[in-house]
C-alpha cells in the first residue's frame, strides 16, 4: 500500500509517500529526521494486518511543508535524510 501523508492547499502539493509493501519495519528513518516526523506503528490503514510500518505522526500531517522546510533549503538542496536512510526505498517526497 502507498500511504500519502500530507496535503494539497493553494500553495502547492506536499506529500510524503510511504510504500508499506517496501517498508521492512527497520525504523532507520525515525532517528534521522531532525524534527522527528516519523514513527513506527501498526498499519492503521490495513486493520487486519499485524505489520509494523513507518508512518508520519498524525499531529504532523497538516504541517509537513513547514516542518520539513529546514531539510529543503530554497537552493542547494541535498539528499533528504529520511529518503537516504531508507534502504528499501520506501519513502518519497512529492515536493
Amino acid at each position: 500500500m502507498i500511504a500519502n501523508y500530507g496535503y494539497k492547499d493553494g500553495s502547492g502539493e506536499f506529500f510524503i509517500a510511504i510504500d508499506t509493501d517496501k517498508c521492512n519495519g527497520c525504523g532507520d528513518c525515525v532517528p534521522v529526521c531532525p524534527p522527528r516526523l516519523l514513527e513506527m506503528a501498526a498499519d492503521e490503514y490495513d486493520p487486519l494486518s499485524e505489520k509494523t510500518v513507518a508512518a508520519v505522526r498524525e499531529e504532523e500531517r497538516k504541517k509537513i511543508k513547514y516542518t520539513c522546510a529546514p531539510c529543503k533549503p530554497a537552493s542547494g538542496r541535498g539528499a533528504l535524510p529520511c529518503v537516504a536512510a531508507c534502504e528499501p526505498g520506501a519513502i518519497a517526497h512529492s515536493w
Binding site: 511543508k65 513547514y66 516542518t67 522546510a69 529546514p70 529543503k72 533549503p73 530554497a74
Partner: peptide
C-alpha cells in the same frame, strides 16, 4: 509566525 519562520529557514 511558525509558518513564516519555516519559510525564512528555507533561505537561511
Amino acid at each position: 509566525s511558525s509558518r513564516v519562520v519555516a519559510m525564512v529557514r528555507r533561505v537561511g
